[in-house]
Design a protein around this nucleic acid. Structure first.
Length: 261
DNA sequence: ATGCCTACATTCTGTAGA
């Protein structure tokens, strides 16, 4: 089974790229972030025509996540638990039946947090990460395959950036951000890409500005984090960076894992 | 030090992203 995560930066602006990618890459489950659409505005029919089931958790203008899947999920949950006042659409979980049991797949869009000295934005990011950790700890107790896939807005290590010195005061790379990410790893979650390659640097995002793609000035911030039961089934990973060279690309590219499910 | 570029919502410009 092929499971992918991709921040598409606007599903309506990206529908041609998305359909091309679904035809070419053919993921069994695709986790999308930054759909920037309400549920009613999501281009559902084009995607369903390619044989995908569509589940969305959208909002007006920005954020928004989705799960596209060849099989219909048994259950779907919207929103990250832990704060009923949080109105930002950044989390959706699907439960899928597979041979021998279930796999849980979450599409998450972790807050950017910049500017890092903002009195609201960075604390919101850290609070969201604490809620994710609590959720992950709870789900871990189920002892099921679980994939926390998404745009984490976290550069885990210096070699995950072309030039880490550019990021030292940035919310994506601050020590507190990286420590929160490590707490997730310390629960037992495995970074799928790093579990399958020593290759570095590897990037999943290149800014639109200043010729970042042409200079390969990227960062690795899109991750598949696996519970032990999911990592036991991991075969390999890939970063499908060729889509960054397409016409009208997203600034992120798909990160995929191949599993023995 | 700042903008670079893009999407979106409402415009003839601002917010947000990373």
């Amino acid at each position: 089974m092929k499971i992918a995560t991709w921040n598409i930066n606007g599903v309506k602006a990206r529908i041609e790229n998305l359909c091309q990618w679904l035809r070419d890459s053919g993921p069994d489950i695709a986790c999308l972030q930054e759909i920037k659409s309400v549920d009613e505005g999501f281009p559902r029919s084009e995607i369903e025509a390619l044989g995908y089931h569509v589940e969305t958790h959208g909002q007006k203008g920005f954020n928004g996540v989705a799960l596209l899947s060849k099989m219909k999920p048994d259950e779907v949950y919207r929103g990250l638990p832990g704060d009923d006042t949080d109105e930002q659409a950044r989390f959706i979980e699907g439960v899928f039946s597979v041979e021998g049991g279930v796999v849980r797949v979450c599409s998450l869009y972790l807050p950017n947090g910049n500017p890092s000295d903002d009195p609201v934005k960075y604390p919101y990011k850290l609070a969201w990460m604490a809620r994710l950790e609590a959720f992950a700890r709870e789900r871990m107790a189920l002892e099921e395959p679980l994939i926390l896939a998404g745009d984490y807005n976290v550069i885990p290590e210096p070699h995950d950036a072309k030039d880490a010195s550019q990021w030292v005061t940035d919310a994506l790379f601050l020590p507190q951000t990286r420590a929160a990410f490590r707490r997730l790893e310390n629960l037992g979650f495995i970074d799928a890409v790093r579990a399958t390659t020593d290759e570095a640097p590897l990037f999943s995002f290149w800014d639109y500005q200043a010729g970042a793609w042409q200079k390969n000035n990227g960062i690795r911030i899109d991750h598949l984090m696996l519970s032990p039961e999911a990592s036991d089934r991991l075969r390999s990973t890939d970063i499908e960076k060729h889509v960054r060279a397409w016409e009208k690309p997203s600034d992120h590219v798909p990160v995929v894992g191949y599993f023995n499910f």
